[in-house]
Simulated assay, not measured.
Amino acid sequence: MPEHIRIMTPQQRLDAILSEGVLRAFPPFGVDFPCACFSESTPEHLAFLVKNWKVKPWGIVTGRGSVFRLGGGAVAYVPDDQYEKFKRLGLGHWAVRVGANSTWMHEREWRIPRKSGAIRLEGLRAILIGDASWRPSLVETEEWINPETGEPCQGPGEAPHARPREDYPALWRESAIWVWDDKSDTVIKYPPGALC
């Protein structure tokens, strides 16, 4: 993973994902093939990850069907000898090695392998945030406004100083928002558009 992404906070990473509308795939630990990685989590499992593993509650929520449509699937958790077989077949990115001291089992990982490194996002189940007051950065839309009047216009041809109208990213406006609540150790769910 590039250093400029590694040093981002979870909020900054989510902001970039929402603004760009894509996930970037990078090789997971011990693998050379780029993948976007997900943890399968029920609300109870999410509470375990946040409380016990100190996972930050910032990210996107999607369903299995979406992962399958993008060429992804569940990772196999296998012992060393089976892991080596996966690697020999060029499928090491589909397996996680487990042993007596394994700390990976809590993830219930799913991956979307992607050589190009970019995965266009559509139809998210939800966006998970850890602070109810947080909002993503505004992005330019394809609509124009006259900055002098604030009214919509057709662009610079109609108003010389016209500029693109800004709004929250489409993924934010069109997805449910789940806000992590530390007091109840669960999420509070808001319908699409409620936190715009």
Results as ranks from 00 to 15, higher is better:
residue 127 I to G: 01
residue 188 I to F: 09
residue 77 Y to D: 13
residue 52 N to E: 13
residue 8 M to R: 13
residue 185 D to P: 00
residue 14 L to A: 05
residue 130 G to I: 04
residue 129 I to W: 00
residue 155 G to T: 08
residue 156 P to S: 08
residue 57 P to D: 05
residue 14 L to I: 01
residue 13 R to W: 13
residue 16 A to K: 14
residue 29 F to W: 11
residue 162 A to L: 06
residue 98 V to F: 13
residue 119 I to S: 07
residue 4 H to P: 10
residue 142 E to T: 07
residue 153 C to H: 06
residue 79 P to E: 15
residue 66 S to R: 11
residue 133 S to K: 06
residue 65 G to M: 09
residue 7 I to H: 13
residue 161 H to D: 11
residue 58 W to K: 02
residue 63 G to Q: 03
residue 65 G to I: 10
residue 134 W to R: 03
residue 118 A to F: 13
residue 160 P to L: 08
residue 91 L to T: 09
residue 154 Q to K: 10
residue 181 D to P: 04
residue 129 I to K: 04
residue 52 N to V: 02
residue 155 G to S: 04
residue 44 E to V: 07
residue 119 I to A: 05
residue 106 H to D: 09
residue 173 R to H: 06
residue 2 P to A: 13
residue 140 E to Y: 05
residue 57 P to A: 08
residue 192 P to G: 00
residue 132 A to K: 09
residue 28 P to L: 09
residue 72 G to S: 14
residue 32 D to K: 10
residue 116 S to W: 02
residue 27 P to C: 09
residue 148 E to I: 04
residue 80 D to R: 15
residue 11 Q to F: 10
residue 70 L to H: 12
residue 46 L to E: 02
residue 123 G to F: 02
residue 14 L to P: 03
residue 141 T to V: 02
residue 190 Y to T: 02
residue 192 P to L: 03
residue 38 F to N: 01
residue 173 R to M: 06
residue 122 E to R: 12
residue 6 R to A: 14
residue 86 F to I: 15
residue 191 P to H: 03
residue 141 T to R: 00
residue 111 R to N: 08
residue 179 V to P: 02
residue 14 L to N: 00
residue 138 L to D: 05
residue 146 N to H: 09
residue 90 G to I: 06
residue 110 W to R: 09
residue 115 K to Y: 12
residue 152 P to F: 10
residue 35 C to E: 06
residue 187 V to N: 01
residue 82 Q to K: 15
residue 144 W to S: 03
residue 11 Q to C: 11
residue 158 E to T: 07
residue 33 F to A: 08
residue 108 R to G: 08
residue 44 E to R: 13
residue 165 R to Q: 10
residue 115 K to S: 12
residue 13 R to Y: 07
residue 52 N to T: 10
residue 57 P to R: 04
residue 78 V to F: 15
residue 190 Y to W: 14
residue 167 D to S: 11
residue 81 D to Q: 15
residue 72 G to Y: 13
residue 2 P to R: 15
residue 84 E to W: 08
residue 46 L to T: 02
residue 190 Y to K: 09
residue 148 E to Y: 08
residue 191 P to V: 07
residue 196 C to V: 13
residue 75 V to H: 10
residue 194 A to W: 02
residue 85 K to F: 13
residue 41 S to T: 12
residue 30 G to S: 09
residue 2 P to C: 09
residue 25 A to E: 04
residue 20 E to C: 04
residue 2 P to N: 13
residue 56 K to Y: 07
residue 188 I to Q: 11
residue 118 A to K: 12
residue 82 Q to N: 15
residue 78 V to I: 15
residue 99 G to C: 12
